[in-house]
């Protein structure tokens, strides 16, 4: 029998093959519960990795879209250098706009550190130029070289220094989430294997009767495989539904709220939840199949 045919008969269901193995209420409930609990945990691990992925993308995008030019020059040269820098920036591909900050804006930026009464005009404060990039961005190294030649007092800060560690932290968080999902999947596989082994051992008489009357291994195995696959599927479905509900009912994220309130799903992310029961069923299918084949090959 081809694999495809076997898979379809698994889904459509061979009620008779299912009946040859006596029903077991207790292990059935344990398997359901464990699959459900694992699926519930998976929902949170998935939410964590999706949220941290979003966070990394957002931080990266926000900081990457703007950079700052700092012009430190003797007071009488600041105006000329600023004008020269703006001219360079305007002719740089990838720069959407460049704007010198006014004295008030600069005072506003410094106020938290020096207080509002700072006589800013009398201090040699560097002139700041805000650069907004286009989607494509500009060539940082090229711009540095041109500025060096034309505006000796300019220092370009493209925020990479700040962005990198944040992105790294978010990426690490996402990795942790994915590793957790992997571990949960492996734990489901281990648990289903144990449950399947127990069921196979408990039904050794059934198996020997079936062997005696000419049942092939795949027929016997399918009775167990179908059962555990359906249990994992339904258990994981319920666990996922409860987990999704819990996430859905979490207090909604504020606009600039912290990381924790950002935990959740957005748009297509909700559909990724549907994968949880399916993956659980696939894991159960293969775990039970290999457990059954192993057990059966040890029998005469």
């Amino acid at each position: 029998m081809s694999k495809k045919l076997r898979l379809s008969s698994l889904i459509v269901g061979d009620a008779q093959a299912d009946r040859v193995v006596p029903p077991t209420g207790f292990t059935a409930r344990l398997t359901l519960f464990a699959a459900g609990a694992m699926a519930f945990l998976t929902v949170f691990a998935l939410a964590l990795s999706l949220a941290s992925g979003r966070l990394a993308a957002r931080w990266g995008a926000e900081l990457a879209q703007s950079s700052t030019l700092r012009i430190s020059a003797p007071a009488e040269q600041v105006g000329a250098q600023t004008a020269a820098a703006l001219a360079v920036l305007e002719s740089t591909p990838g720069v959407a706009s460049a704007r010198a900050l006014s004295a008030e804006e600069q005072r506003g930026l410094l106020a938290p550190w020096f207080g509002p009464d700072l006589p800013i005009d009398s201090l040699p404060i560097p002139q700041l130029v805000e650069i907004v990039e286009t989607e494509e961005g500009y060539d940082v190294a090229g711009l540095r070289l041109r500025l060096q030649a034309e505006v000796p007092g300019a220092v370009l800060d493209d925020h990479t220094r700040w962005r990198r560690p944040l992105e790294r932290a978010a990426a690490r968080l996402r990795l942790l989430g994915l590793v957790s999902i992997g571990l949960i999947g492996a734990a489901i596989a281990a648990m289903i294997t144990l449950a399947a082994n127990a069921a196979l051992a408990a039904n050794s008489q059934v198996i020997s009767v079936l062997r005696l009357i000419g049942a092939q291994d795949h027929y016997i195995a399918s009775a167990f495989v179908r059962r555990f696959t359906l249990r994992a599927l339904s258990g994981a479905f319920v666990g996922t539904a409860i987990g999704a509900l819990a996430i859905f009912l979490m207090p909604s994220a504020q606009e600039d709220g912290g990381f924790l309130t950002g935990l959740g799903f957005e748009g297509a992310g909700w559909f990724s939840l549907l994968l949880i029961p399916i993956v659980a069923a696939v894991v159960a299918y293969f775990a039970t199949g290999s457990a059954a084949r192993r057990t059966l090959s040890e029998l005469t």
Binding site: V20, P22, V209, R211, L212, I213, G214, Q216, D217
Partner: peptide
């Protein structure tokens, strides 16, 4: 092979001394 044995047992009917059945059917 194991499947060969299964097919053979469809051609050989066996009555055991201690007959075993599926007790739930």
């Amino acid at each position: 092979t194991r499947d060969d044995h299964a097919m053979t047992r469809r051609q050989i009917g066996v009555v055991h001394q201690d007959c075993q059945f599926l007790d739930h059917l």
